[in-house]
């Protein structure tokens, strides 16, 4: 379970103080698919980066499996990201000079897992996203949809508990987007918790629950009980 407690993130743009995330509290259950919707600049991606241990909040805490992740050292936080989190980005963020297989295996390059076992895992992940047989291709040889599938496979390779996706369909056409959303929906059956940021309200239906952000605050939520959306002063 992920507990977000009174989370605030502020930064300065020149001399102007910006509240990207404004006192948000909520809980995400294991194996839950949460979608976060909102307009550009509403704080969706910032919340995701804080959840992923990439950006320290100004105040508040994130508790994952009883672990306050921002009390960890930078080394421990990197390990947390490696073991708990799988990221999927809007622009795929694949390494262009690596092949499909090498991109997928990136998270395993810092482990002691043998090459043979790594390749076997890569094959399974590729098959699960429908890219079997394309392991030796370079990114330039793939369509946008295929690249996003590679990114999803990379997020799954080290079997993380949480998948954080930042507008994974943002750069894709409607048909490909639907196929990618189906993959995310299917991931639930592998026991993953999924947090997906999107500005497309239609995709919120894939999730178990959804929150809508505006100016860093939760302004709407579906699928939440009062106890799960615990004391949120901003609402």
């Amino acid at each position: 379970m992920i507990k977000i407690n009174e989370l605030t993130k502020e930064y300065y743009s020149g001399s102007e103080r910006v509240l990207a995330v404004n006192n948000i509290s909520l809980e995400i259950e294991d194996n839950e698919f949460l979608t976060i919707i909102g307009q550009s600049g509403s704080g969706k991606s910032t919340l995701l980066t804080i959840l992923g241990g990439l950006s320290k909040p100004t105040s508040g805490s994130i508790i994952v499996d009883d672990l306050d992740i921002y009390s960890l050292s930078s080394k421990q936080l990197a390990r947390f990201r490696h073991e708990y989190i799988g990221f999927v980005f809007q622009s795929f963020q694949l390494v262009n000079y690596l092949t499909v297989e090498e991109n997928i295996l990136l998270p395993l390059s810092i482990t002691k897992i043998k090459d043979k076992a790594q390749k076997s895992l890569a094959e399974k992940c590729l098959a699960s996203v429908g890219l079997a047989g394309k392991s030796k291709r370079l990114m330039t040889e793939l369509s946008g949809g295929e690249q996003q599938r590679v990114a999803i496979a990379r997020a799954l390779i080290n079997d993380p508990l949480i998948i954080l996706a930042d507008e994974p369909t943002g750069n894709l056409d409607t048909e490909t987007s639907a196929a990618i959303m189906k993959i995310f929906f299917d991931l639930k059956s592998f026991g993953k918790s999924i947090v997906m940021v999107t500005h497309n309200k239609d995709y919120a239906k894939y999730g178990d629950s959804s929150i809508e952000l505006s100016d860093g605050k939760i302004i709407n939520q579906t699928g939440y009980t009062a106890s799960r959306l615990h004391e949120n002063k901003a609402v």
């Binding site: 990439l54 990197a78 390990r79 990201r81 989190i85 963020q93 998270p107 810092i110």
Partner: peptide
């Protein structure tokens, strides 16, 4: 820069 950001996001430590 982006590549390094990706590597950090997937759990690479500073030493890596």
């Amino acid at each position: 820069t982006k590549e390094i950001g990706i590597l950090k996001a997937i759990g690479f430590r500073d030493s890596h």
